[in-house]
Amino acid sequence: MSNNSSELNSLDGTSEYVTVHINEQLFGLPIEQVEDVFMPDAITEVPLSNPEVAGVLNLRGRIVTAIDMRKRLGLPPYDKDKVPMAVGIEYQQESYGLIIDRVGEVLRLGNRTFEKNPANLDVRWGSISAGVHRLDGQILVLLDVERILDINGEKSNAA
């Protein structure tokens, strides 16, 4: 799966990422894949669904499937007192919302700081990460939207 946009972008030098924080870890999403940022409200749980699916919600008349990124990454659940945020993503004509702790900024990153996933990266993380960027003082993990949304593991063999 080398054709994901983040890697493609990094070939021509730099590309922009929306940074998000999940459990104090910095992640980056390719900016062209981010539709909007919103506060997930009134999520309807979907019984029998994969636990990583937080549920469905109404975002301006569209039904959005919300993904619990903490569960997706195998992290402890959200702090009940804190208000989570969501990043809206459009993928194959469907709307998804990735629930995260908070949104950071927009960063322009070049392939100078890019590295492949370290070999000892948690398998769970590795399966949805497209690589990492060495930043000053911290490391940014690039998220691969396509693989995040492949919750049922249909394409996991290709990964």
């Binding site: 309807t44 979907v46 019984p47 029998l48 669904s49 994969n50 699916v53 469905v56 109404n58 008349g61 039904i63 499937t65 194959q92 469907e94 998804y96 949304l149 919750i151 049922n152």
Partner: peptide, 16 residues
């Protein structure tokens, strides 16, 4: 239903 949830046979769709 979102394609991610379509395999749950218990639901035929969702609505607002």
């Amino acid at each position: 239903m979102s394609s991610m949830l379509r395999e749950i046979t218990m639901f035929s769709g969702n609505t607002i």
